[in-house]
Structures are given as structure tokens and as C-alpha cells.
């Protein structure tokens, strides 16, 4: 606080130097600790536990391991199997189909078209439609890299993206838990 006399009047000026010093320190702190968050995207999914399905041999599969197979209602399941052929985490073999009807091994670049066919067929409500399904299970080798799995999730997401609805009960299962094929 400095005082200055002028013609009998007292002019009071506030010394802001200390405040400025403190403000600069605060500013330095915020500049040094500033780290912009990484730009990240995401896919929102509803992931219920896989419902048990009855395989051709009457064996229950899925996560409801404790249930008696007689108590399990059959659920039509579209299955996409991703096999880590070389054990190095890369995608080796892809199979798609409804297990009770039959799985078909296809090249990866055809997976999008096959999924498109199944999803288009899903809209057909007639009971005779053999390709209709209630849940989608993506079966993956446990050693498969997450990146490869996400590519398949991407293909699945794109099938329902234009319709404004979400994927129908997508579930993940590690390969080896289901035995009906």
C-alpha cells in the first residue's frame, strides 16, 4: 500500500505486485500440469452373458453351466467363430452360422457380406426363416489379439448402424467353452 499526497487529497493505490506474483505461480502450475485428454472413440454395446443353447448332441453350452439341459430353452444363436490358427494372435480362420443348422468356414473378407445377409434375414419375421436368430455370439480363441476381435465387432455394429437399433444380444465366448459343433 503506497500513499501519494496530491493537493491535500489522499490517493490510495493498491499494490498488485504480490497478487501478480501469486497469479503467475498459479498460471505456471496449470500450464505445466496441463495434459489434454487423448481423443478416444467408443462402441457402446449391451453385453448380456451368453444364454445357454442346445447343440446338436443335446449338450448345453454357454455360460449357464449349472442348469439342467432339460430346463434350457433353445435360443437361436448366430455364431461367429474366430480361430487363432498360428497361435500368434492373428486371425486365422473365420466360421459363421447357426450351430443347429451348420457352421461354414469363410474367408475373412466375406464375413461382412455374410453378416449382412443374416441381419437382413433377421428382419423377416416369418417362423420358417432358417436364418433368424435371437442372439449373436462371437466365439474367439483366448490368444487372439483384441484388435482382431474389434474388427469383427466393427463389422457387426455396421450391420445394425443404419437401422437405429443396437446389436441383438451380442455376447463373447472364448473358444473351447462350446462343444455342440
Amino acid at each position: 500500500m503506497s500513499k501519494k499526497k496530491a493537493k491535500g487529497d489522499e490517493e490510495v493505490t493498491l499494490n498488485v505486485t504480490a497478487m501478480l506474483d501469486m497469479a503467475f505461480q498459479l498460471l505456471a502450475f496449470f500450464i505445466l500440469t496441463f495434459r489434454p485428454p487423448p481423443a478416444e472413440y467408443q462402441i457402446f454395446l449391451k453385453l448380456p452373458p451368453a444364454q445357454a443353447v442346445l447343440g446338436a448332441g443335446g449338450q448345453a453350452a454357454g455360460n449357464d453351466e449349472n442348469k439342467d439341459p432339460k430346463d434350457i430353452k433353445p435360443v437361436k444363436t448366430l455364431t461367429v467363430s474366430l480361430l487363432d490358427k498360428n497361435g500368434d494372435g492373428s486371425l486365422g480362420e473365420v466360421a459363421i452360422g447357426i450351430p443347429s443348422i451348420g457352421m461354414k468356414t469363410i474367408p475373412y473378407n466375406e464375413l461382412g457380406d455374410r453378416l449382412h445377409d443374416y441381419f437382413r434375414s433377421k428382419d423377416d419375421d416369418s417362423k420358417e426363416n432358417p436364418d433368424s436368430f435371437d442372439q449373436l455370439i462371437v466365439q474367439v480363441s483366448p490368444t487372439m489379439h483384441w484388435e482382431e476381435v474389434m474388427k469383427v465387432v466393427d463389422l457387426c455394429t455396421k450391420q445394425s448402424a443404419g437401422k437405429g437399433d443396437k446389436l441383438p444380444g451380442l455376447s463373447f465366448l472364448p473358444l473351447g467353452e462350446r462343444t455342440e459343433e
Binding site: 478416444e40 467408443q42 453385453l47 448380456p48 452373458p49 455360460n63 494372435g89 474367439v140 480363441s141 483366448p142 490368444t143 487372439m144 489379439h145 483384441w146 484388435e147 476381435v149 474389434m150 463373447f172 465366448l173 472364448p174
Partner: peptide, 21 residues
Amino acid sequence: VIRADSTCPFGAVNYIITECQ
């Protein structure tokens, strides 16, 4: 929110998802 490395094995991610379920 699952933030998994692209080279993370599926078995690890699936374990976390199952535990969350």
C-alpha cells in the same frame, strides 16, 4: 469402459467382461 491394448489377448478382456457381468 473397456480400454484394452490392441495386442491384449481376448482371454484377458473376456475375463474382465465376465467378471463385470
